[in-house]
Computed example of a mutant assay.
Amino acid sequence: MMKMKRWIAIALLALLAVSAYAQAKPATIKVAVMAPLTGNLANIGEQFRQGVELKAKQVNAAGGIDGKKVELKYFDDKADPKEAANIAQLILGDKDIVAVIGSYTSSVCFAVTPILEKERLSMITPSASNPLLTKGNKVMFKMWTGFDVYAPMIADLAVTELGKKRVAVLYVYNDWGIGVKDYFVARAKKLGATMVAEEVLYDGDKDFKTQLTRIKSRNPDVLAIMTYYAEGAIIAQQAKALGINVQLVGSGTFVEDQFLDMAKEYAEGMYVVNEFVSDDPRATVQEFVKAFKAEFNGALPGNYQGNAYDALGAILHAYKQSGSSRAAVNDGLQNLVGYRGMAGEISFKGQEIAKPQVFVQLKNGRWTFFKESPILK
């Protein structure tokens, strides 16, 4: 009798241990989303949210990953590096979080990287493009192609695709603007173009007539604008007013509704290199656009929704392929090759994204697909 009681006790203890283990294991796959959710850049955070929630909803509707549903936990970093550093500590303390999506700016990403690296907690930014973000660490991944890649593509677009030979550039004086300009100029010269003007502007400037007058005197056949959308729209207006009727090219910073509202017909015919455009005929893009419109009352997605969608997809793919720990997810992302995302086949090379880019043209007041950008040689 005593022997039987002992066996019953052992069996009960075993059941309790199994139950405790089951309770200790996370019931969901928890991913943090760090973005500006309030303030002037709250619209960016909202676009991140739309992208990740669509992907999470699709995965959960299909049964999750190995039976586990995706759980998203949001953190408002206000695009402030100090705020973001505090949030990163909170995220690190939640041991159920396996990866992070965010943030919007390179400065925020730089601030949180050393904190996340303490536990190999991976972070994929849908938007930041500074090439230095992925240097000297193993945790920061970029879903937005770096300007060391897309700036030379803009030069190829202008010189090779459009046949322009006399190139002027007007750029914003900050880390991003200088970097884009330098890579663009180097590639344009390599392709045989002549740089006839390199003019600079500063954040907050609204009058560019002095720079544009000097550019006009150099007789360019193409003007590359390396600024954000507000300055770019004003430049397009002032260039036309000064009689500068040359081809305009630029980066994906102009693929925003606000740019179209401000630039109106003055930027008609402009070409840019971009991550994504909703009329891209590729099947993966159209599947995403159809699902997005159905989920968000017919709205069309943009760059940030698409990149956030693919960022979560890449994390979940790494989780399924490599394991549920933070280190395992990091290993999976480090070795990600050929994941089929919205943007086509996606791979990480040294934490830098490798995926197709597209040439986009402003035609009849809307951004339209021109062609897929070739891989540079």
Rank of each mutant, 00 (worst) to 15 (best):
Y74V: 12
P126F: 00
N86R: 12
M153C: 06
F141Q: 04
G63Q: 11
M143W: 01
V100N: 13
N60C: 08
D77Q: 04
K68A: 09
M123V: 13
K164C: 10
S103L: 01
Y150E: 05
V59W: 03
S127H: 13
V108F: 14
Q47C: 10
N130R: 12
S107D: 12
S129F: 04
K55L: 15
R166E: 02
G63C: 06
I124W: 00
K164N: 05
L162K: 04
M34L: 14
N43R: 12
M123R: 09
D66F: 01
L54M: 13
Q50C: 10
I101E: 12
L157Y: 03
E117D: 14
A56P: 11
N86H: 08
V59F: 00
L37R: 14
P36F: 10
V139M: 09
A35I: 08
L37K: 04
K95C: 00
A128T: 06
K165H: 09
K57I: 01
G39D: 01
V31L: 06
K165P: 02
V167E: 02
A84F: 07
W144N: 12
V31E: 06
I124L: 14
Y104C: 07
E83Y: 08
G163A: 14
E119T: 13
R166D: 04
S107K: 13
N60A: 08
N130K: 14
D96Y: 07
M153I: 06
N137S: 09
E83I: 05
V149C: 00
K78S: 02
P36G: 07
F110D: 04
A99Y: 12
A88S: 07
F147A: 03
A151Q: 02
V159M: 01
V167D: 00
M153K: 09
I91K: 00
S127M: 14
S122I: 14
M153H: 01
L132P: 01
K118Y: 09
A42F: 12
K55Q: 15
K30Y: 07
G67P: 06
I65P: 09
A88K: 00
C109W: 02
E46H: 09
L54C: 04
D96G: 04
I87L: 14
N40L: 13
M153A: 15
D80A: 08
L92M: 14
G45D: 02
L133F: 03
S107P: 07
A85G: 09
E117Q: 15
D94I: 04
K118P: 05
Q89F: 00
Q50I: 06
T160L: 13
V98L: 06
D96L: 03
V108S: 11
L41P: 03
I97L: 07
K138G: 11
Y104H: 15
A35H: 01
S122R: 07
E46L: 12
S129C: 15
